[in-house]
């Protein structure tokens, strides 16, 4: 379902801008664009309440002039400008990631076709690059793979190309869910299932031989016990999406689990780790 947003443009001075932003952030607004004469805020239409907004403006109008104009916009792929200019990327001379519109001269053993459409994972970001590097060095043959926070579905597609028997990817973001399905089709994959939702949606009946999670430190720490439970004895867990400076925080969290660090890699300030569950 396509989301509709209420966009509010405020015209006011800087003190009022800061105060209104503080107030709006307490009633569901999460980001603000500072403009020349004030700021812009938006919220999904179903969460917008005109009465609360009017009260808020009223309560600060004694501090100075506040004008608010509003309109509505439909969700669309705002990343299209970047996506139409992105360049193919080659990882370890083994794997090329390109969009459907790219024409390429050189052949590589593995080719991943990814149309990103505002989802994360093209190989350009260090963490996706690190995940792919790790996957290329990990045995996937006949393995069951879980791709947590699958984004564009790029890691799932690679897992199938590397011989995995069954892959389940999940993402809580609807755009990512739709985009993963599109990319699975583009790559003619048949052994990938995509689930929309969080890790709770993944059934506890089956375990996985390999779990991939390129998300962020907070989510990884929150879901670490679930990954551990879903991992078969001797299974591999590859994590990325966190900074080098956060490695110790993550390692402290695995101290009580029967899991050992077998490899760590970094690229610029980003990090990946490869962990193995004891048999």
């Amino acid at each position: 379902m396509q989301r509709v947003y209420k966009v509010l443009s405020f015209f006011c001075d800087q003190i009022i801008t800061d105060i209104l932003i503080a107030e709006l952030s307490n009633i569901g607004f999460d980001s603000f664009l500072i403009t020349e004469n004030g700021f812009e805020a938006s919220i999904s239409l179903e969460h917008f309440d005109q009465k609360i907004l009017d009260e808020l403006i009223d309560s600060y109008s004694s501090l100075g002039s506040i004008t608010c104009r509003s309109n509505q916009i439909r969700e669309k792929n705002w990343n299209v400008e970047w996506e139409k200019n992105f360049q193919p990327i080659v990882i370890e001379d083994q794997c090329i990631v390109r969009a459907a519109f790219h024409k390429i001269k050189n052949k590589y053993p593995i080719e991943l076709i990814i149309n990103p459409k505002m989802s994360f994972g093209t190989g350009h970001h260090e963490t996706t690059y690190l995940m792919i590097q790790n996957q290329l060095n990990t045995d996937h043959e006949h393995k069951r793979v879980l791709d947590a926070g699958c984004g564009t579905g790029i890691l799932s597609v690679l897992a199938e190309k590397l011989g995995a028997e069954k892959i389940i990817g999940f993402d809580m973001d609807h755009w990512a869910y739709e985009n993963s399905l599109e990319n699975i089709n583009l790559n003619s994959c048949h052994r990938i299932e995509i689930v929309e939702g969080k890790i709770e949606k993944i059934s506890g009946q089956h375990t996985f031989d390999l779990i991939l999670a390129n998300i962020n430190l907070n989510v990884i720490i929150e879901d670490l016990n679930s990954y551990y439970k879903l991992l078969s004895p001797g299974g591999i867990l590859i994590l990325s999406g966190f900074l080098v400076s956060d490695l110790n925080t993550l390692l402290n969290c695995i101290e009580d689990l029967n899991i050992s660090l077998i490899e760590q890699n970094s690229r610029n300030k980003w990090m990946s780790v490869c962990l193995k569950k004891d048999k």
Binding site: R3, Y5, V7, S31, F32, L33, E40, A41, S42, S44, I73, E75, W78, N79, V80, E81, W82, N85, F86, P116, M118, S119, F120, H124, H125, G151
Partner: peptide, 16 residues
């Protein structure tokens, strides 16, 4: 989502 997506996207930056 707006305003981050439209603001960065219109400048050709990679939002994600």
């Amino acid at each position: 989502s707006p305003p981050v997506g439209p603001a960065l996207g219109s400048k050709g930056l990679n939002i994600m």
